[in-house]
Structure formats: C-alpha cells, structure tokens
C-alpha cells in the first residue's frame, strides 16, 4: 500500500507546484524519486518530529499543501501537541502519512506499533482520519483528498497488503462501503484486516450457517453514522474488526454511535487487548497469536453468538 500511496503523491506533486513533502529521516529506498524531481519541495527534516510538524504548519500557513511522512508513533505521538495546536487549531492543509498501521512492523515490536493512533487523533478538531483497506482504496482516497483543504491523517500499512477492492473504484467520502449483505450479523471493519474478515465470514456461513453483512469503514472521522445504524438494526450481533487497540478505535466509534441512537444490540469489538504484546513475531504470526487472523476472528464471533 505504501508504494502506491507514494507514487500517487509523486504524480500529484508534478501537477501542483505548491505542494511539499516532508519526512523525518524515513523512507529510504522509497522517497528518492520525489527527492530527485522536487529538490526544493522535498525536505528531510532529520530525526526531529516536533520541528517537522512546525515546519509543515508554517509551509501550510503560507498556502502550501504539505505531506508529512513517518512511522505512525513518531509522526503523531512525539509531536502530538504540534498536531493539535499548530495543524488542527489552524485547520491547515497538511496530510499526515502514517506508515505501519497496527502491528504491521512485526518484529520491530511495540515501539513501532500503532495501536492508539485512532484513539488519540479522533478528538482533535478538524482532523479527518482515513484508514484504507488496500492500495486501490488508498490511491482513490488520495485523489479525492487532494482537493480537500484540512488536516488529514492516513493510516497506511506497509508493502504487501492483499488487494480487495476492484477498479473502477468509486471513493465516497465518509461513506461506509457494503462489501456483502447477510441477515444475521454485521461486521464493521477498517484497514488491512479486510481479507481476514471476509474469510472469517465465509467460515461462519460454512460452519454455522451465519450470514454476515460486511461494511468497510474507510473514513473513521467524520463517521458514517447512517450506515452503522441502518445495517445494525435487527441483527443478532454487531462486530467490529480493527488492527488497533480496543480502546478508542472503531469498536468505540460503533458502540458510541449505536448507544447515542438508541439501537439495542450487542457489540463484539475485535482488536488488540489493553496489554503490552510481549511476544516477538511477524505480522502474520502476531495476528494469529492475537486472534486477528480469519480463524481468530471467526472463533471470537462464534463464541459471542453462542452466549
């Protein structure tokens, strides 16, 4: 997904000479094309994220469109207050390209994981959160957002996420995307766990005859409340699936929405529990361990349906 995003932004920067690309010394073997083509508009700020967000804000205040690239925790946690005060309070045209959603970084482990990013960015005024499921969605989303002038966070995976969506793809801002319809349960999913979720739904149907509606929520803020309500009514169970901590992410968004609208239905939130991941392993290994692979998602839903 990462390469598709960078190629799309590279193309955009050829057309918009008022655009800048900043990195905090990351993107080796990826950003060289942008650096070569736009030496004045590509800035490697160094390992100094607070300064990076401040510089991005100054550029945006002078009318530039700015992309800022780093690994998620460095991009949004080290400099959270700069994002809040400088970017969000001033509603600046800055796109934060966060690499390594969830546990993408595998063996690099906890310091490089992004399990709280949605929870901490959601409360910020003017912030839009885009969590694409694959490269096709990411690229179409970026094309849409390039005409958009406000703070944006894109929660990007790494290199080799499976492609789920098909061209031509019609990106609709803040509109959930129904992938399949089924009458028993609804599963809301965001980000790169799409394929695991689809496979879990196949298994649910095969093993216990449960029919699932699957809704891809690619924009987490502003949230598409209508689709959450519409697809949750008369379901046995509402499920949320995300590669994010269970506090403050999609599970919380869906639960809040349902409670606020008076929809009485049980919600099963599938994500990463509120404790440190002590085992080392690849994303594939860790997903299995944390019950985020299709079997793990299936078994959690199966258990919830039994109760």
């Amino acid at each position: 997904m990462r390469n598709g995003v960078i190629n799309e932004i590279h193309d955009y920067m050829k057309k918009n000479k008022q655009s800048y690309f900043l990195t905090g010394d990351l993107g080796y073997n990826l950003l060289e094309g942008i650096e070569k083509d736009f030496p004045d508009r590509f800035i490697n700020v160094g390992v100094a994220e607070q300064n990076m967000i401040g510089i991005a804000s100054g550029l945006a205040l002078s009318g530039k469109k700015v992309f800022v690239y780093s690994i998620i925790p460095f991009l949004i946690m080290r400099d959270y207050e700069q994002i809040r005060n400088d970017i969000c309070y001033h509603k600046l045209d800055i796109t934060l390209l966060g690499i390594g959603s969830g546990i993408s970084y595998g063996i690099l482990s906890n310091t490089h994981f992004a399990l709280e990013d949605v929870a901490i960015l959601r409360p910020l005024p003017n912030m839009v959160i885009f969590s694409p499921s694959d490269e096709i969605e990411a690229v179409h989303g970026i094309r849409y957002f390039n005409n958009h002038r406000q703070p944006l966070y894109i929660r990007i995976g790494l290199r080799s996420e499976p492609i789920i969506n098909k061209e031509p793809y019609d990106f609709l801002f803040s509109r959930g995307n129904i992938l399949q319809k089924g009458e028993d349960i609804v599963i809301f999913v965001t980000g790169t766990l799409m394929e695991e979720t689809i496979n879990a739904a196949v298994l649910l149907k095969k093993e216990i005859g449960t029919e699932s509606t699957i809704v891809n929520i690619h924009v987490l803020k502003p949230i598409d409340k209508d689709i959450i309500i519409k697809t949750s009514i008369n379901k046995k169970l509402v499920v949320t699936v995300e590669e994010h901590g269970l506090i403050g992410g999609l599970g919380a968004i869906v639960s809040e929405t349902l409670a606020q609208c008076g929809i009485r239905v049980k919600v099963l939130s599938i994500g990463i529990k509120d404790k440190l991941i002590k085992q080392t392993g690849t994303r594939v290994y860790l997903r299995k361990l944390l019950k985020l692979d299709y079997l793990g998602i299936y078994s959690q839903i199966w258990q919830a349906l039994r109760k």
Binding site: N51, G54, G58, L61
Partner: peptide, 9 residues
C-alpha cells in the same frame, strides 16, 4: 518551527 516553515516558503 512554524517560522521556519514560513521562511522556507
């Protein structure tokens, strides 16, 4: 830092 962004532009 914000000043740096402006002066760079």
């Amino acid at each position: 830092s914000v000043g740096i962004g402006l002066s760079t532009a």
